[in-house]
Amino acid sequence: MTALPARHVAAESSADKLEEIRALVDGELHEVNRIILEMMQSEISLIPELARHIVAAGGKRVRPILTLLAARLCGYRGTRQIGLAACVEFIHTATLLHDDVVDESDLRRGNPTANAVWGNKAPVLVGDFLFSRAFQLMVADGSLKVLAILSNASAVIAEGEVHQLVTANDTATTEAAYLQVIAAKTAALFKAACQIGAVVADRPEIEEMALAAYGDNLGIAFQLVDDALDYHAKQALLGKSVGDDFREGKITLPVLLAFARGDEEERAFWRRTLENLDQTPEDLERAQALLARHGAIEATIARAEEYGERARQALAIFPYSRAKQAMLDLLDFCIARAY
């Protein structure tokens, strides 16, 4: 496995680093969680039961933490960021419920997915309920600009998921199309989560756009690392079954790189397994071997580091503060997961 560059958080200490970041916004995060639990409630018992199932699965709350840190970075001293951070988490959780149904996933963060427990119908409908709660929080905030940013992000995420569905099982997918998918389905919410921190603080557009750029590049780096991990992480670390992307025929950057660098016999393997989904129990191991042969995992992580550096540079306009350091540390944490 590639050695960890010194400028990154060591993999074994990254969890501790995340706890330090969380500690900085612990009081606010507690209020975010209170709002989430409160708004999950319904007289229809299946709604809180199913919503609690995915919330209790142990998400890291990276996206709402970004909203809290961005607001603090911009010197905001009010409370609007708390409701909006909860809104961001509701959007994220709703997309997870829908994604697991589409992907027919059995595990999420090491636990059975909602669709594995309740079937497909209930998670889709509860996901819709959580989206509705998110929009209630947007309206309660009262800012048309915040509403525009978060509602646009929701639309972009949905488009990204449909785009991924269209490009799935197609080895002719280009890197540009792949990057367009992950910019939409993952980075859009990272971007919005950061951008609204500047909006609530009424900061100049240059700061708003800097935070949007930080979130956008962080989100792309985050997804690139996830796509690399799908082929070489331990299941306990990944929080889902290793090789899920392969079994579902998803076209991710490691596959695109190995496909481009391979010979015709190797490309025939990728077409059989990903386009036709004609797979044997040994095929995942062979796929991992081909990725290793062509350095596809290392190249994907290197690409994630490039986007991470762009995110780092986007924060350069802000003076040093504990919040800025935490956002830089969170960037390191997201990339260090690969090692």
Rank of each mutant, 00 (worst) to 15 (best):
G83W: 00
P254Y: 00
I65Y: 06
V181W: 00
E282T: 10
V139R: 11
A153L: 09
E309T: 15
V199W: 14
T95R: 05
G243A: 04
A11V: 08
P112Q: 08
D216Q: 15
E205W: 10
T280Q: 13
Y339V: 11
M327N: 04
D100H: 11
E12K: 08
V242W: 04
M327P: 06
P319G: 09
R63E: 05
Q195G: 08
L211E: 10
I317E: 11
I35P: 04
L37Y: 13
M138C: 11
L229C: 07
A268H: 09
A85L: 05
Q313F: 10
A304E: 03
A114D: 08
L68M: 05
E175N: 10
D202T: 12
I157S: 09
M1C: 13
L211S: 04
D226R: 01
H98Y: 03
V9S: 04
L144W: 09
W270H: 03
L218F: 02
A85S: 10
G197D: 14
H294C: 05
A134P: 04
T252W: 00
D99S: 14
D202K: 15
T252N: 03
E20D: 12
R312F: 07
L144G: 08
T2Q: 14
G219E: 03
D245F: 01
A11D: 11
L237K: 14
A314F: 07
T2L: 12
A183D: 15
S154L: 12
G239Y: 06
V181T: 01
A326M: 05
A158V: 14
K234F: 07
A70G: 07
C334E: 08
E38Y: 13
V200N: 15
L29F: 07
V156W: 00
L256F: 00
A116N: 12
I65H: 02
F269M: 05
R303C: 05
D244P: 00
G243Y: 03
P123H: 03
V181Y: 02
A212S: 02
P281N: 10
G295R: 04
A302V: 09
F222Y: 09
L256K: 05
R261V: 03
P281G: 10
A183S: 15
L29V: 08
W270E: 02
D278G: 04
L46K: 09
G249V: 01
V156C: 04
Q81S: 06
L147I: 14
E305R: 02
A289W: 05
I301H: 00
E265N: 12
E43Y: 14
E12C: 04
V156P: 00
I157N: 02
I220Q: 04
I91Q: 06
Y320Q: 14
I65W: 05
V126I: 15
Y307R: 06
G197K: 11
V181C: 02
A168L: 09
L274H: 06
K17Q: 09
A184V: 01
L46T: 13
T171I: 14
L24F: 11
I36C: 12
G119K: 08
P319D: 13
R34S: 13
R108P: 01
H294I: 08
N33G: 08
Q325T: 14
A323M: 05
A11C: 09
A323T: 02
H232G: 07
Y320M: 09
V117I: 12
A311N: 11
S143A: 14
K185M: 00
D227A: 01
N169S: 13
G262F: 05
A228E: 00
L315M: 05
